[in-house]
């Protein structure tokens, strides 16, 4: 069934959009990620104008993370205090991101920066997670005791001032790394048009040593509010949020996320991390291939002004 999108100004097969939303929603619920880094390239690949894809995905991620946040909230698996501090940083990062986004767009190198960032961040984080999860699985197999929280093993982060107590996470850390982390993810998220959960979750685990039982819920809370803000900003700045496309993606996405969240409960942490690591690496590899292989067509056109710009 073809449906004409009012903002994207092209007709799409609505079932294909439902399907894409559902598949990405499933992964989003499973891993506690927004799924933006998968959905945005998928939409662009299927012919949606890149600006519309980036802006509309923020709306879809808002919906899927609302649904997921509610699930984790009922399970009391969200540290609201930690989430709020991350969000404070996130808003600051977004503002800087919006500024840089405009500068890069004027220079005509936004696409390159996005591709390089995807390769760099997805590659690095994917590799780190892969190594860590494989080690954890080996330890478990060889019968060693896995200690998720290692008391007494403090890193340099724990020596910083302005300490704050996060009761739910059983943490007593400085707010400096918390706000910095929020700002970094907010900044990258705005530039790349993604929520940044795949970066947030490992950072919270490895840098701040947030217990795994609250890490996904807290990360989702931060994503929800960053993406809601991004939706409004995109709507105001570029008028590229397509509400019809967003609704189709959302319906597919929230349904998928429900199944994903349930399946995630049946898998062990390191198994989830291994799967996510492989997924992240795969997407990163795809971007790397595009950058390195000789393109099929060297030329491309972009509407800069006038009708339909």
């Amino acid at each position: 069934m073809q449906l004409y999108l009012p903002i994207a100004e092209i007709p799409v097969n609505i079932f294909m959009i439902f399907g894409m939303g559902g598949a990405v929603g499933f992964l989003s619920g499973l891993f506690g990620i927004g799924g933006g880094f998968l959905l945005t390239p998928l939409l662009i690949f299927s012919g949606i104008p890149p600006a519309v894809a980036v802006a509309t995905v923020t709306t879809q991620v808002t919906a899927s993370s609302t649904s997921a946040v509610l699930t984790y909230w009922r399970r009391k698996a969200i540290d609201f205090k930690l989430g709020t501090m991350l969000l404070v940083g996130g808003v600051m990062g977004s503002i800087i991101g919006v500024f840089l986004f405009e500068v890069l767009q004027k220079l005509g190198q936004l696409d390159l920066v996005i591709s390089l960032s995807y390769v760099t961040f997805l590659g690095t984080i994917g590799s780190l997670m892969l190594v860590e999860s494989v080690r954890a699985m080996r330890r478990r197999r060889s019968g060693q005791v896995v200690r998720v929280k290692r008391p007494g093993q403090h890193n340099w982060i724990h020596g910083l001032p302005f300490k704050m107590r996060f009761r739910q996470s059983r943490l007593y850390v400085s707010v400096i790394p918390v706000i910095t982390l929020g700002a970094t993810i907010g900044f990258l998220g705005t530039i790349l048009g993604i929520g940044g959960g795949f970066m947030m979750v490992p950072a919270l685990i490895y840098l701040l040593r947030v217990p795994t039982n609250v890490v996904i819920g807290t990360s989702l809370l931060q994503i929800l509010f960053t993406m809601a803000t991004a939706t409004v900003l995109h709507a105001m700045q570029t008028q590229t949020v397509d509400i019809v496309l967003a609704l189709a993606l959302m319906i597919g996405g929230v349904i998928g996320a429900q199944f994903g969240a349930r399946m995630g409960q049946n898998l062990r942490g390191e198994q989830l991390r291994l799967l996510l690591a492989l997924l992240v690496l795969l997407v990163g590899l795809r971007f790397a291939v595009d950058l390195l292989l000789t393109p099929e067509d060297l030329y491309s056109i972009a509407i800069m002004g006038g009708a339909g710009a």
Binding site: T66, S67, I251
Partner: peptide, 30 residues
């Protein structure tokens, strides 16, 4: 036409509507 005009002429309202729509969809699904 209605959607397009709203997005063009009242972008803030349009953006907030999109967020509300997203929130309701997510909540309903839950």
């Amino acid at each position: 036409q209605v959607t397009f005009n709203l997005a063009q002429n009242h972008p803030a309202v349009y953006g907030l509507l999109a967020v509300i729509l997203a929130g309701i969809t997510g909540w309903l699904a839950g």
